[in-house]
Design a protein around this nucleic acid. Structure first.
Length: 508
RNA sequence: GAUCUUGUAGCUCAGCCGGUAGAGCAUUUGACUUUUAAUCAAAGGGUCUCGGGUUCGAAUCCCGACAGGAUCACCA
């Protein structure tokens, strides 16, 4: 791959540095005393002497030359600070090489440097570091995109090509300071969720990612192979069946925040690997779980936004208090006028045709109801709403409803038309569970390629006795999108999955 | 997987009624010891994603491939 003019210049600058005896990649510890944000916060005009002998390190992100002085900006993890370098300050004697050559010619934007000196405020009012010495820390061989911002906050030449931003997230993070906030918020969301669960003494656990049987969800898995065992394995599509085994083993509450893998299409809301949180608590039912979910989301939202509500897409979403509750059939009746209670498969198919919803022959009762719900109801559920009591057929791991024939005790939480959480009163009758799995096998024979596989060991575990319990799953990426007002899942993943680059950009 | 759409300099974009490329920033050279989208003067930089086709001639029109985005399908 031929080097661009700017890459050649930078390599040549590196060579010249080395010829001057300057190590462009030194080993020594950098005596950093402050973050730039700390310096700005602690600087006081009336007592500037409190901040002398300070040292910062970071990337050089802007240079403004003014003859025998240079203004530049150094960016560290906390932000940017202007530095002011006067030739006579760093080159006291006759030899002006350090200023004229090393700083002005051989140091490029993107290079890492450390500078020390004292803090002051410029004529223009900017808190700055007056440099008395500077050290080269690392040479950048490629030019960074230069994003400029004026004093009104207008951005010029933004680095905004999504392909480049996602493929080269390191560049994105370097030049687009604000995107870091989303990832910090994601981290805070997970930490606050963990803190909430830990405060209830529920145990965080880790379960296998390599599964001999793919179960716990309806999705197509990735396949892999273990050489020594010479056996096929799947990357997990869900961890539900393992977490339940742990409750069977005697824990009161277990949760796992981890990566799931589904071999399906990609879109602005689907990545092949995504992070889910699943929690199971013994002796609880789905009614209890609804209340717990309300508390959890109110807590998380408060941790992130200092209030229980968020503003998004022109709506104020309120996570405090009790959420609206509707059974799935009630919601369908509300938005389509059709009462599906007791309807046969053929009748449902007819309703789908009336509503102009595409159906095919592999779809059973559960799937047909789900199609109607997805097409007609979901998008209307803006404020947090629990949709409860789904058809038995589409939910093979949930307990039959205590009073409603043909339904299970399940809820899904919808916010802004999107599913955020999914929970059941878990099925703990092993005989019923076996029948449900067998029904899934029939669906699979009919051509439903997402039907669940039968897990013999899971049935065996349940046959030893499983306490009543409720389980909840939350998509962390989706929740982060909601909480951070991001439209695309790629904006909440550091490294979203991309097709391979065709240009041999990476190979040198 | 389907539909629509985009791909031009390191980055952001113009050029697209066909006549072999432009701007701003970045880069190079020079000036400037308080600048901040620094400024001023000058210069260099492109296999116009790739492959075909139409044409005397293609960045531009047509077909295909590759990659991205949006929407849909599926799901979390």
């Amino acid at each position: 791959m031929a080097l661009s003019e700017q890459e050649i210049v930078r390599r040549d600058n590196l060579r010249q540095l080395q010829e001057l005896g300057i190590n462009a990649f030194p080993h020594e510890l950098v005596p950093v005393t402050h973050l730039t944000a700390t310096l700005k916060a602690e600087y006081k005009d009336e007592a500037p002497e409190l901040l002398k002998d300070v040292c910062i390190a970071g990337r050089l992100m802007a240079i403004r030359e003014a003859g025998k002085a240079v203004f530049a900006e150094v960016q560290d993890s906390s932000g940017r600070l202007q530095i002011y370098v006067r030739r006579d300050d760093i080159c006291a004697g006759e030899d002006k090489t350090l200023f004229d050559k090393v700083l002005k010619k051989l140091t490029d934007i993107g290079d890492y440097i450390s500078v020390s000196g004292y803090m002051f405020r410029t004529k223009m009012g900017e808190i700055s570091l007056h440099v008395t010495s500077f050290t080269f820390l690392s040479k950048a061989l490629r030019p960074l995109p230069i994003v400029k911002k004026d004093k009104d906050g207008n951005i010029y030449d933004a680095f905004n090509n999504p392909e480049l931003r996602h493929r080269q997230r390191y560049v994105d993070l370097t030049v687009n300071a604000e995107i870091k906030k989303t990832f910090l918020m994601r981290n805070k969301l997970i930490r606050s969720m963990r803190a909430f669960f830990d405060s209830h003494d529920w145990l965080e656990v880790e379960t296998p990612i390599l599964h001999p049987v793919h179960g716990g969800a309806s999705a197509r898995p990735f396949s892999t192979h273990h050489n020594a065992l010479d056996m096929g394995l799947y990357l997990r599509i869900a961890n539900e069946l393992y977490l339940k085994r742990l409750i069977i083993g005697g824990f009161d509450g277990v949760y796992e925040i981890g990566r799931m893998f589904r071999n399906e299409g990609m879109s602005y809301k689907h990545n092949p690997e995504f992070t889910s949180m699943e929690i199971y608590v013994a002796y609880k039912d789905y009614v209890w779980m609804m209340a717990m979910t309300e508390e959890l989301l109110a807590y998380i939202c408060t941790q992130l936004h200092n209030r229980t509500a968020i503003e998004i897409e022109g709506h104020t979403i309120e996570f405090g208090g009790e959420y609206a509750k509707m059974s799935m059939f009630e919601s369908i009746e509300k938005y389509t006028g059709h009462d599906l209670t007791g309807k046969s498969e053929e009748e449902l198919r007819q309703i789908c045709r009336e509503l102009k919803i595409g159906v095919d022959n592999t779809m059973g009762v559960g799937k047909l109801v789900d199609e109607i719900f997805s097409a007609k109801v979901e998008k209307n559920l803006i404020q947090p709403t629990f949709i409860t009591d789904h058809p038995l057929e589409m939910t093979p791991l949930a307990k039959k409803h205590r009073s409603k024939e043909g339904l299970v005790e399940r809820f899904e939480l919808f916010v802004l038309g999107k599913e955020i959480a999914n929970a059941y009163t878990e099925l703990n009758d092993a005989i019923d569970q076996r029948e449900r799995f067998e029904h899934q096998l029939e669906l699979a024979k009919r051509g439903d390629d997402e039907a669940m596989a039968l897990d013999e060991d899971f049935l065996r575990a349940m046959e030893y006795g499983m306490p009543p319990m409720s389980g909840l799953g939350i998509g962390i990426d989706r929740l982060t999108m909601l909480m951070s007002n991001q439209h695309s899942i790629q904006e909440v993943l550091f490294f979203p999955q991309m097709r391979p680059e065709t240009k041999n950009e990476v190979t040198e």
